[in-house]
Design a protein around this nucleic acid. Sequence first.
RNA 1: GCGGGGAUUGCCGAGCGGUCAAAGGCGCUGGACUUAGGAUCCAGUCCUUAGUGGUUCGAGAGUUCGAAUCUCUCUCCCCGCACCA
Length: 978
Amino acid sequence: MASFLEGIRKIETKWQKRWDEKKIFVGKVDHSKPKYFVTVPYPYASGTLHIGHCRTYNLGDLFTRYKRQRGFNVMWPMAYHITGTPVLSVSAKIKEKDEKEWKKYRDYVSIYESDEKKVEEIVGSFVEPMNVAMYFSGKLMEDFKRMGFSIDDTREFTTGDPEYNKFIEWQYKILNEKGYITKGEYPILWCTNCKNAVGEDDIYAGDETKVEVSEFVGIKFKLKNKNTFLVAATFRPETIFGATNVWINPENKYCEIKIDDENWIVSSEAVSKLKNQHHKIEITREFKGRELFDQEVEVPLTGVVIPIYPATFVDTDHATGVVYSVPGHAPYDYAALVDLQKNEELIKKYSLDESKLKSIIPISLIKLDGYGEFPAVEIYEKMGVQSQEDIEKLEKATQTIYKEEFYSGVMKSNTGEFNSLKVEEAKVAVAKKLKELNLASNVYEVSTKAKCRCGGKIIAAVIEDQYFLNYGNKKWKELAFKALNNMKIVPEKYRQAFENVFNWLDKRPCVRKRGLGTEFPITKGKGWIIESLSDSVIYMAFYTIIKTIKESKIKPEQLKPILFDHIFLSNHDVETVSKETSISVDTINAMKSEFEYWYPNDLRHTAIAHISNHLSFTIFHHVAIFQEKYWPQMFSLNEMLNREGEKMGKSKGNVIPIAKIPEKYSVDLTRLHLASIATQESVVDWREVEVNHSKEKLRKFWEFAIMVEKSEKIDPQSYSFISKIVLASVKRNMKLAIDAMERFNPRDYILSGFFDNIRELENYLKLSSNSNEKEVQSVIKETVENMIILMAPVIPHICEEIYERYGNTGFVSLQKIEDIILTEEDTQLALQLKFLTNLMKDIEQVMKLVKSEPKKMIIYIAPQWKNELYKLAKDSFAEEAFNIGKIMSLVKNHETLNKYMKNIADEAKLMMKDPTIFRISMLTPDEQLNAIQGYIKIINKKYPEITVETYISDTKDVFDPQNKARKARPMKPAILLL
RNA sequence: GCGGGGAUUGCCGAGCGGUCAAAGGCGCUGGACUUAGGAUCCAGUCCUUAGUGGUUCGAGAGUUCGAAUCUCUCUCCCCGCACCA
């Protein structure tokens, strides 16, 4: 068993070497053939790929190889993505001696290196980000080749190459000229220590807790008789109508600040946050919260004057550290109010006006079904909250009330113009109104307190000069939809997802201050880098010219915008471009013609995860930059892969790296199994026991091929009936396979073209065991010869080997898969096989049921008039319901059927019961008889003790002792065992 | 929450208006071959029966001559939700 796979592995490396030597997968312009340009997104070069990624690239290769064998001039190039933050983060962690990261990278590198010292050395070199990128990009190509992928490796580049940077600069120059880039403010996560934006990678334990920026509405409560505002941050501005007082943490520090020409009071911690949120701030004075308790504030919009009270639940390190109290609808507020009202000590300590405090009662402003006036009070009592320190219960209560009020609450009449609005709407409307009146402004805060890997505190900061790709631009969106509507999406069901993404897409930040990448050309020198998802959307075009750039030794600085304008947009005349760039006219023409030959991208295949970003951006950027004829033509997508029912993950230790596939399974086996186990749109489960099955079938195929290696084929004219029907079935399977692949369904391609045909051969071997040996071998050889061409896209190595052993030169990978046209005879033979298969099933069934040991089998074929009756019924009741009255009257006027009125009445009852029985393809009684006679040897072989007689029911001398013959139906003979 | 996809016979997984009791695989049960077999081969695997019957495709309702397939409602599961590749 092992030896089979060992043999296959040798074959695999043998052919990979030959493909490489003969460079058969290098894309060359050839105007005599239709071209087909395939891409699969380049992998990110920060680690190795595993069998899950392999599924995607495997499908890409399948499509590529198939199209190549269908007569297209195909190109599938590959490059490596290194821009962005992950590579940086790897290096940072390696530098920090992060044990987990070291282990992870030792594991990665150990896949390729056996020497432990060398592994250490290589991982150590990863302190330099480029070393990470360079090491893995090299390994990725090795892996791809080892999987037999038919990639054109002469067009490799990385997204960090200076040539690529020039191309991306040009892309952004065009986008800017078209007005698709806008500038504005943007809140982000920011580390106060390293003074930098942070991403998930930079946050301590960022992969476990999700940290986001939350947008609060900071509502300004004017201090009575002063020109200073106490700014309370809230998610629920609509509750302003229920404010009864303001909460302040009594012992923590607050500051009075001058902020953008206003005076605010916020917590001391809030000041440093606001400084990073695009405000000009000066601290006027600093004091303890308790100093505010002798003052009062005005509630915006209502003008009501309310007091300021102490509450310990107020966290001064959260938003502004000021909270306004809505005890009717906020459980925390109610809890704090109750606490304070009964706390004589505190009242005395802060010299609060006791009668005023005790007179405070909740205000109801939202109507919520299932609750009374004050939902917060109800839930407080129901949950048995003890105090404002009872955080667990209060959190839950707040969540519940917030959610219910948000979705089902309606504003009451005491909310003025917002009366009877849904809370969901009122929330937005109130915030808008407050901002218009300059009574509120946005305050940003992190959703969860977090620390940067450097140890610094993470806050929400507002970036001023943030540039965005304005996907919300109406014209841009329209063009994108136009492109999408003309594209083929496979599986088609994902089109809807694209449409939703398109509608939802709006401004997207496209530059950042960190990470590897291309400097943003509009703000040269200011350290803005183009964000890495935004720099990888039109690079398919770059594949068409990078080869010439390298071969002609063009320097990056020669790659001026004018050159790209000329190649991609046909602007400027070539002489001018040549003069400006010092690149020869011939070279420029060569680049331009490569682009014009290969573009557009005919097929881009990838995983569905990319729909909401990469693939959508690809469409947007293409329509923004290129002429319509260069827009993407088709996307095909696949789901992910699990292993033994579980997601693969480093922590589970169940990852199969691509590099381990050849030795663990074999390349062809993996390719076959990956593509056939499920359709693209389902999550596949990689299970060892099932891989084993694919292995056995692969072996079977190999054995068939080798069995007839030296055999000669004989004249097909002399083939027996059995051979003919088997070959007709094989042919039909091949046709089904090709039809499936034309619909980009590789699974059905393999099921019909490989597994079904192997079954056909196994069956044939059984049926033909006493036939002419030469004939049998000839039939098998003919089938295998067809199969190796058809299956070469899936299991190319084995197919090449067999192709060679059968005396061919050249590569089966370049053999054309021809169209298959089924002739009348093929259809007839296939129908006969179907007829016989069903008959055998019926016989088996009856044989099982019969109690005695039969000596004789009589098969009664239905008479011709029944065929005619079925045909009449099929034609007459294609659309309408079967109807006995109608069929009888049709029969009455029928020149042949009218003789059988009585019998037909019985038959019609059957047809009434099951209208499907007459919707079949039929053979005439004589054809059925011939088929049975051609098959009689098989029946005899299976039941050697039984003699078989066959009759057409209405002929003379029918032996019918049990009156069975009348039960025969077209294609369904009656059977009698005696 | 929003958006998308899904639920098929013990399990995985096809089918997407009529040869559908529903491919194929796995598992299981018999049998053959064997020193042995976790290898291979054969047969069986909803119930019933000398066959061409009955009940099934998450639950319920509907459309149709006909529904696993179309529509609606419900329940449950998976995936995506922006500065992250």
